[in-house]
């Protein structure tokens, strides 16, 4: 794949809450390449959204702190940017699509105005041109009668249509990177497919890199070339779509894939959930975050954090099982709908 456009390195983010400091993101690193789609997969509370929002400094300043790490875009560390500088990045270079289109549009503002807002700010164009461009954008994302719909308010749109508007807004200034934070979670299934296809089509046209955050492996298969699996604030495994689905190395990834329903599965066989629930990140110990739920847990897992082991150029997993000293274990028979080779 091509050159790296966005590089997150060793990111640590913590929240100040009433019950103490919570380290929501710990040592997260990944690269986003030009034109590719990278999916960050993980369950609720694994720190996916926090990672995404910290890229654009959209986390509440009073309660969040980025403790260390760097987010390099265009040769500069975004974390060192001040308000004025990050405003030039937001929307123009990196844009974001949010989870719930019902709440991510301003209810008292005409959608045309909301689309035009970013255009006027970044492209230094007049209202008239911005309006023309907005109508084009809305047409592009599949909103019929775009010219008339410019004057509609969000409540006059369905959920799917609103998400199209949000996407039009995000793509208004031709951003190089699009961060989609669970873009289809709040939509029903048929609309989900439409929105994903729309994003793929637009990506083909514009060559935008997409960072998609999701807990839905179905979305991942549809969209991503590369996957980063996140658990309890850490990335536990990264690899290409094939590597993660066919040769997963981390027990958490196995669990995720096992718990996914498959098309041709015998319906009498129940899905296998991952036992237990994610750890309380405020009570994190030194070892592997998955140790408490891992069926293959060893002594070392509880006290020492495993390093990322490079399995191939594109594939890495943070698990002691990949260590040379680890015992050979038998991976679960069926994961991801394919028998393990």
């Amino acid at each position: 794949m091509g050159e790296t456009i966005l590089s997150v390195d060793n990111l640590d983010v913590s929240f100040q809450t009433n019950s103490g400091l919570i380290k929501a993101v710990r040592g997260v690193s990944f690269d986003l390449k030009k034109g590719e789609t990278l999916a960050i997969v993980g369950e609720s509370g694994s720190g996916k959204s926090v990672t995404a929002k910290s890229i654009m400094q959209l986390l509440p300043k009073q309660s969040t702190r980025i403790d260390s790490g760097s987010i390099v875009y265009g040769g500069n560390d975004l974390l060192e940017y001040g308000n004025k500088e990050i405003e030039k990045i937001r929307g123009k270079e990196i844009a974001m699509v949010f989870q719930d289109p019902m709440t991510s549009l301003n209810p008292t503002m005409k959608i045309g105005k909301q689309v035009m807002e970013g255009l006027i700010k970044h492209n230094n164009i007049r209202k008239k041109e911005a309006k023309k461009r907005s109508i084009e954008l809305l047409t592009e994302v599949g909103i019929p009668y775009a010219e008339e719909r410019m004057n509609s308010f969000p409540h006059e749109f369905s959920g799917g249509m609103r998400q199209r508007v949000v996407i039009a807004m995000a793509l208004a200034c031709d951003p190089k990177v699009l961060i989609a934070d669970e873009p289809t979670t709040a939509l029903d299934v048929t609309i989900q497919a439409q929105i994903l296809n729309l994003m793929k089509e637009l990506q083909k046209k514009t060559g935008t890199s997409i960072l998609i955050i999701t807990h839905d492996l179905g979305v991942v298969v549809n969209m991503a070339q590369r996957i980063a699996v996140m658990y309890a604030g850490e990335i536990v495994e990264t690899g290409t779509l094939r590597e993660i689905f066919y040769k997963p190395k981390h027990p958490y990834t196995w669990g995720l894939l096992q718990s996914m329903p498959k098309m041709h599965q015998d319906q009498s066989v129940p899905l296998i959930p991952i036992a237990g629930s994610p750890p309380d990140v405020s009570l994190m110990h030194d070892g592997c975050p998955f140790a408490a739920r891992c069926p293959y847990v060893m002594k070392v897992c509880h006290n020492h954090k495993p390093d990322q082991t490079q399995i191939s150029v594109t594939h890495a997993a943070a698990c002691w099982l990949e260590d040379d000293w680890a015992p050979e274990i038998k991976q679960p028979e069926k994961i991801g709908g394919v028998s393990n080779s």
Binding site: G91, F98, T103, E117, G118, M169
Partner: peptide, 12 residues
């Protein structure tokens, strides 16, 4: 969330 959306657009 729409406030975050607005901020994400890069307006001051």
């Amino acid at each position: 969330e729409f406030v975050t959306t607005a901020r994400a657009k890069g307006i001051t």
